[in-house]
Design a protein around this nucleic acid. Structure first.
Lengths: 184, 184
DNA sequence: ATGGTTATATAATATATGTTATATAGCAGT
DNA sequence: ACTGCTATATAACATATATTATATAACCAT
C-alpha cells in the first residue's frame, strides 16, 4: 500500500489553525483540504464527518485555553492573574474565545456550578489563609470575580478589542478589591 | 394593478419573530416566505437583498431591547433595576440578546466609551445626589456594574439559562453594594 | 515484474441558501 | 370589455457546503 502523505494530526492542526486565526466558521472541508493541498478523502478517512472533526477542534481549543491560562497564573495574586489571563485570552485569542464561551452551551445551572466548573480549589484554600477569610468567603469573591472577568472578556471579544491591557488590568484590580472589601 | 397582499411590515414582523423565537440564523428567505405563505418575490420587492433585511431586523431588535429595559427601570434603584432588566433580557429573550450583544461588533475602544454608549446620564446625576457621591464616582460604579451585569447576562444566555431570577438578582445586588462600598 | 491493497484524487450527488428571469393573474383606467 | 401595469408565483440559476462514488496510482509482498 502507498505510504500515507496526510496524517490525522495534520488535519487537526490545520483545522485548529483555521479556527484560531480565521474563526470557527472557517473550519469547513474545502478550506482544510486547500490549506493542506489535498483532496477531501483523507479527511473522511480519519473523521466520520465534519461534526466529529469540529468537536475535536473544540477539545483542542479547550486544551489550548487551559494551557494559556495556567501559563499566566502567578502564585501570589492567583485570582487577579487568572482574571487578567482570561481577559488576555479574549483579546489575543478572540476567535478561540468566541468558539469556547460564546457559542457552545455548557449547561450551567447555578453560580455554584460555575465555581465547580471553573474553580481551582487549591487556590481557594491557599488564599483563605493568606487573607484570613473563610473558604466560603473566598468562594464568594471567586465567583464574583469570575463573573466580572467574563463581562470584561466578552465585551473585548465582541467589541473589536481595542481596550488596552493597562485599562482592563486596572478595572479587574478595582473589582477584586471591591469584592474583597465587601467581605468585611 | 392588483392590490398588495403582502406588506413590508408583514415581512419585517415575520423576520423579527423568527429572530426572536428561533434565533438570528433562522432569518432566511425560505423561512420568511413559508411563514407568510408567499413566494420570495414580495421580499425582494421591498428589500434589495437579505443583508439589508437582516440589518432592519437588527434595528428592530435594538428597539425592542430598549423598550424592554426602560419598561423595567424603577425610579428608586435605577442601577439595580437596570441590571436586573438586562439579565432578564438575556434569560427570557436569549435569541435577541445573542443577536445584539454576542455577534455584531460595535467598536468600543475604552470603558469610558461603554459609559457613553450605554449610560443614562440623567440617572447618574440623580443618583449622585442620593448617595452624596461625585458624578465621577457614580460613573465608576455604573461602569463596574454594567460590566458585571454583562458577565451574568452572557453566562445565562450561553449556558442554557437555568439560573433562577432570585439567584441572579442576589448576585447583582451584592456586586452593586460592593462597588458602592468601594467608593468610600 | 506483477498484482493487489489502499491512500488519495477526481468527480458526482445532495442540500441549503440567495438571486434573477420568466410567467401568470388581478385590478384600474379608459 | 379591453388593455396595460404590477403584485405575486413558478422556476431557473448560482454558489457554498457536506457526503459519496468512482478512478488512479503508489507501494508492498510475492
Amino acid at each position: 500500500m502507498p505510504k500515507q502523505r496526510i496524517t490525522k494530526e495534520m488535519i487537526l492542526d490545520v483545522a485548529f489553525k483555521l479556527a484560531r486565526e480565521k474563526g470557527g466558521e472557517h473550519v469547513v472541508l474545502k478550506n482544510i483540504a486547500a490549506e493542506i493541498g489535498c483532496s477531501v478523502q483523507p479527511i473522511y478517512s480519519y473523521y466520520d464527518n465534519m461534526e466529529t472533526l469540529k468537536e475535536t477542534v473544540f477539545g483542542a481549543a479547550m486544551q489550548f485555553y487551559n494551557r494559556f491560562i495556567y501559563s499566566r497564573v502567578d502564585a501570589d495574586g492567583i485570582l487577579e492573574s487568572m482574571a487578567r489571563a482570561n481577559v488576555a485570552f479574549a483579546k489575543y485569542e478572540t476567535n478561540l474565545f468566541k468558539l469556547l464561551f460564546l457559542q457552545k452551551l455548557n449547561g450551567l445551572n447555578s453560580f455554584d456550578d460555575i465555581y465547580e466548573w471553573m474553580g481551582d480549589k487549591q487556590a481557594a484554600t491557599q488564599l483563605a489563609e493568606k487573607l484570613s477569610l473563610t473558604e466560603n468567603e473566598i468562594k464568594e469573591i471567586y465567583i464574583m470575580l469570575i463573573v466580572f472577568t467574563h463581562g470584561v472578556a466578552t465585551m473585548i471579544a465582541t467589541g473589536g478589542a481595542n481596550i488596552s491591557d493597562e485599562e482592563s488590568a486596572s478595572v479587574l484590580e478595582k473589582a477584586y478589591r471591591a469584592f474583597v472589601k465587601a467581605q468585611t
